[in-house]
Design a protein around this nucleic acid. Structure first.
Lengths: 213, 213
DNA sequence: CTGATTTTGTTATTCATTTCACAATAACTC
DNA sequence: GAGTTATTGTGAAATGAATAACAAAATCAG
């Protein structure tokens, strides 16, 4: 295999899994590239191309066995073990994510949140909110690999530097700045304002009839 | 201009603006494509290409005047007027977004939130939380163009159908399903679990040395 | 068992995006 | 003000991603 794997194909892989789980829950045992393509609103050849990239094979004329696919995809994505995670910044978004139940069942364990505000650190949540001083040792002692960053933009780079020192492996960054870090640390940026502005551009464009692909 | 504008170039345009604002706040008056490229970690030629796409011009050897650029970009993105917005689903995420202050200053006005749970609709926030029954009339009467969808996946399509009927123009969807809607409604999906799984893939890959571009 | 049919897996093709390369030109130097 | 330098703007080249096309294989029908 000398093919490169793009970010997009991984995004699709994750979506295939979601759809396959739904199919499985509906009692289906097999799928065709066709079915998956329809569910994701892409072409069947794209599905097969992706599968070939990840060595996911099916049977000619018989399609793919959902159970097998799910097992292999889950393996590829890396969900056969748990990933210990922390949240940094217990503001509105941080607190919302603390209480978000969608992560747990996917073997992403949120072990703690951190905040500079001592008031936050004393409130009771089911997951502890700790003062920033404990960050480094907590990461070390609890085998934390991923940090979710929900601090204000101004604090974000400072926190990132601490995370680098503590050997974090991946960061989900909600702060609206580009974090600097060694390239072996994987950073995924989510910028909510940007997503809204994107919508604004497109609903605005419509009126003015500028070609948008 | 017979060039097509891609989603990515708009994403970058929004990022240029953020960076330019920061530069302006630092007291700078001019930039070169170089500076912007470095800030966004892309190539200078990409910056110039984008600018040419949007007819953003500078001066040879003199670079670009930040004030001018900002004005033009803001105009292109569509921020010269306010965009009325609602949040549907007053769960953790919905409530967090209700209290998020980052939108206000950007002329995105969150006019109300909606929830089926009457308990939520009686709590006091600075923005009203209303029962779902009011959705249609509220959208009509308050000139709402954008909806932020934070309901559970199961409810999301049903809500989407209501939004379509009420003539919404754009949706920011946090529910982890692919919404069906007429294509003239612009839908932007944000899937937090997927973003985390993406990180997991990449931090896992590192060990196994599979080529990733 | 033979032929028709379906569906995969992969190679070729098309389409889109990014990067390069360089002419044009504005600004600077002396 | 002549020459040098820096920087834009864009057409061409390179790279990357999506789609189409089709041979090979599995299944089905009779």
């Amino acid at each position: 295999m000398n093919n490169k794997i793009s970010k997009n194909s991984i995004r699709r892989l994750i979506r295939y899994r979601t759809v396959l789980q739904r199919f499985q829950n509906m009692g289906l045992g097999k799928v065709f590239s066709d079915n998956l393509a329809e569910a994701l609103d892409i072409k069947a050849s794209q599905v097969r191309k992706d599968f070939s990239l990840f060595n996911l094979t099916g049977n000619k004329r018989g399609g793919y066995v959902i159970g097998d696919l799910l097992e292999k995809i889950t393996n590829i994505i890396g969900k056969n073990r748990t990933y210990n995670t922390i949240i940094i910044g217990a503001g509105n978004l941080g607190k919302a994510l603390l209480q978000y139940t969608g992560f747990e069942k996917e073997d992403i364990k949120i072990k703690a949140a951190f905040d500079i505000d001592p008031a936050e650190t004393h409130k009771q949540y089911s997951t502890p909110v700790l003062p920033m001083e404990n960050l480094h040792s907590f990461i070390q002692e609890n085998d934390i690999e991923i940090a979710i960053l929900t601090t204000p933009a101004l604090a974000a780079q400072r926190v990132m530097d601490l995370l680098v020192k503590a050997n974090i492996k991946g960061v989900l960054n909600f702060a609206p700045i580009r974090l600097k870090a060694p390239k072996e640390i994987f950073i995924n940026n989510v910028n909510l304002l940007q997503e809204l502005e994107n919508i604004i551009f497109f609903i605005k464009e419509k009126k003015e009839k500028i070609a948008v692909i």
